[in-house]
Design a protein around this nucleic acid. Structure first.
Lengths: 188, 188
DNA sequence: ACAGGTGATGTCAGTTACTGTTATCACTAT
DNA sequence: ATAGTGATAACAGTAACTGACATCACCTGT
């Protein structure tokens, strides 16, 4: 038997989500999270930069998917379509973890501090997509605007999907949101 | 002579901006801010909910301007155009304080925590615009999408304007960004 | 003029997020 | 065996934030 239980990070993550759901983010101390995971507060901060980050560290995987999908799009693809391909490439990640996504989202929606962090992560993902577009030769401000529009479309689609993940198809919702954005900006 | 120096809030605000610029946000303590303003740490937290908020409390004024402008738009105005009217209605606020805006923006750009707060404020403003649109009978998700697109356009325009406020016209930059968004989403 | 109320501020004690440093000790490689 | 190595614990410290209560110039009504 090894000295430590395996998967300390995962245990901390699960303990945190449980406690945030049971008593709320503000009413949960890091010490409590660590105790439930059988670790100490200090170890929590070795895995996560702060108390919020425990709910968001998965974003790194998304970033890679986005960047790869944009880089792999056919040469002639319009920027907004390359962004759409990236967003759809990440759909399976959410489908696989729909229950986790629901629980996580409910916690985030209950706390402004967590919403701040979510917005920062979303902005970071958009910035990564913009950079990937620039690497394809898309100039500014087109690259950033296309990436930001994509982020909005995803946010809108995700909000609807997460309310009932089995009823909706996330890919379809993303395409619908992009279509709606098109008709909105086309106005007048 | 009155018991206290007047404008405690303004003194705290100015002291904070100075110190954040002199030594950086993280290297500044609230006690130092309060001391420079001739007050105590406890009083700082009576005026501002936290150390970041001191740079952002002006947003309330913007919200009112946005909401009023959208409510006052002609009946037949398209949602995206009502949003454009709102953004332009707020332009004078920025023109009047271009120096403050520049200094503030430089501080925010140097600190991720402040960027988080800025994103949250921006999202709150977009939510207020969306609500104002709904009050005009604009359905969801059109209202939210139009407001979010407006927020993007403003962010992009503001970033260019603040780099050299006397060279650019903020209203023109906003219109340009909206036009670019139109051609980007129209793609393919 | 005086008593009492009010409101902005100060004082103080407490919690908790987060950080730096050093110690421990099962496991591994030589 | 012996000497690392790496994940963790233990401990001390800083500073953001909160709650409770005290203070005291000013105002208000009589």
């Amino acid at each position: 038997m090894s000295r430590w239980e395996p998967n300390a990070r995962g245990r901390l993550e699960q303990a945190a989500l449980e406690l945030y759901r049971e008593r709320g983010f503000d009413q949960t101390t890091v010490t409590e999270i660590a105790e439930r995971a059988g670790l100490t507060e200090r170890t929590f901060f070795r895995y996560f930069a702060d108390k919020r980050e425990v709910l968001f560290w998965g974003q790194e995987r998304l970033r890679e998917l986005y960047v790869r999908a944009i880089a792999a799009a056919p040469e002639s693809t319009e920027p907004i379509d390359a962004v759409a391909l990236a967003l759809e490439a990440a759909v399976p990640v959410f489908h696989e973890r729909r229950e986790l996504a629901r629980k996580r989202q409910a916690v985030v929606e209950a706390n402004p501090g967590l919403q701040e962090r979510e917005l920062l992560k979303s902005a970071a993902l958009a910035a990564a997509m913009a950079e990937a577009l620039r690497n394809r030769g898309v100039p500014e401000p087109t690259a950033s605007l296309a990436a930001d529009v994509g982020a909005i479309a995803f946010k809108t689609a995700f909000a609807r999907w997460v309310s009932d993940p089995d009823k909706h198809d996330l890919s379809r919702l993303i395409r619908e949101s992009l279509d709606q954005l098109k008709s909105i900006t086309a106005g007048a």
